[in-house]
């Protein structure tokens, strides 16, 4: 997409190389650095990159912060693989643009016209729509809303975004993990810009996250009971208890015990469980895939 991305590169760039640079003493030092960055920039043809945006609905911005929690990895992503074309605070673009991948943060408030319109617009303008984080995928804590809150007492109906639009892929958990969104971004790049072999890898990697989007938009620690233990599949590895962001799960005699008063319905435990899904075609190649992702981020 050449020429369609009015970005402000220099803002982000100096930080990427700052560790090596001496602290700026006078303003002219800084200006010199920026010029060097701009020259490097032109070596990478922008057309190869994919475009990613983040649509912020009823969420706490934790998902957006998670994207930034990749630290230097975020700069690498933006340098080589993706242009960030839409995101609260990070990008100075007011209206939802066309994009390859749209990460939607937050659930959708049905009582808020703008949210509904923007979500539909994002769906229409993106190739891959991702429910990014527990709220977008499953409602998460917004499931507990009953309205009456300042300063919008009339806002009470919050739904996972798949109630309003079709969703292609889920990244559950609250907050999601920086490494997971990084992996999805790299795989999306391979899927849209890679050779056949890379496309196959990316498809295999992304498939379970796409199947998760087909599975439904209700999540709870109870999923471990219904779809793992009750199905005779639990072997007590402890992953669910280890992954729960609110420590709602403890292991009692080798099986998860869910404190449903603490559960925020983020979907992390079930998605992380090795018995919710386990794709041998990807997992058996874990060493190569991790090397490839690490290599891509060098």
């Amino acid at each position: 997409m050449p020429g369609r991305t009015p970005e402000k590169r220099p803002e982000g760039q100096p930080a990427a190389t700052q560790p090596q640079a001496k602290p700026a003493v006078k303003p002219s030092d800084v200006i010199v650095k920026e010029k060097v960055e701009v020259v490097q920039k032109e070596e990478k043809p922008v057309a190869e990159k994919i475009t990613i945006g983040e649509l912020h609905l009823s969420g706490c911005t934790g998902c957006l912060v998670t994207l930034a929690d990749n630290y230097e990895g975020l700069f690498k992503l933006l340098d080589d693989y993706a242009d960030l074309v839409y995101a609260l605070t990070l990008v100075d673009v007011r209206h939802v643009p066309e994009m390859d991948v749209c990460l939607v943060e937050g659930s959708c408030c049905l009582n808020d016209k703008t949210s509904v319109e923007e979500l539909k617009e994002a769906r229409a303008k993106s190739k891959v729509l991702v429910a990014y984080g527990g709220c977008a995928a499953y409602g998460n804590i917004t499931r507990f809303s009953r309205g009456g809150q300042w300063n919008q007492p009339g806002h009470e109906a919050y739904v996972p975004i798949s109630e309003v639009v079709d969703v292609d892929l889920y990244i559950p958990s609250c907050p999601p993990c920086p490494q997971q969104v990084r992996n999805v971004a790299v795989m999306a790049y391979l899927l849209l810009r890679g050779n056949d072999e890379q496309k196959n890898l990316a498809t295999a990697y992304l498939t379970p996250l796409m199947q998760l989007a087909q599975r439904g938009n209700e999540a709870c620690g109870c999923d471990l009971l219904y779809d793992v233990i009750n199905q005779g599949l639990c072997m007590g590895c402890g992953t669910c208890a280890g992954t729960c962001p609110v420590r709602a799960i403890t292991m009692e005699y080798g099986k998860p015990n869910v404190n449903r008063d603490l559960c925020i319905k983020c979907g992390a435990c079930y998605a992380q469980c090795p018995r919710s899904w386990f794709n041998f075609d990807v997992m058996n190649n874990y060493e190569g895939i991790m090397d490839a992702i690490n290599g891509a981020m060098q």
Binding site: C177, Q179, Q180, N183, L209, C237, T239, Q272, M283
Partner: peptide, 22 residues
């Protein structure tokens, strides 16, 4: 056990709730 090694690799390749573990 083998299943726990599977869980470790899933946590590394798909770190859904396993922040900064991979």
């Amino acid at each position: 056990t083998p299943c726990q090694m599977q869980a470790v690799r899933k946590a590394q390749l798909y770190p859904i709730g396993m922040r900064d573990v991979d």
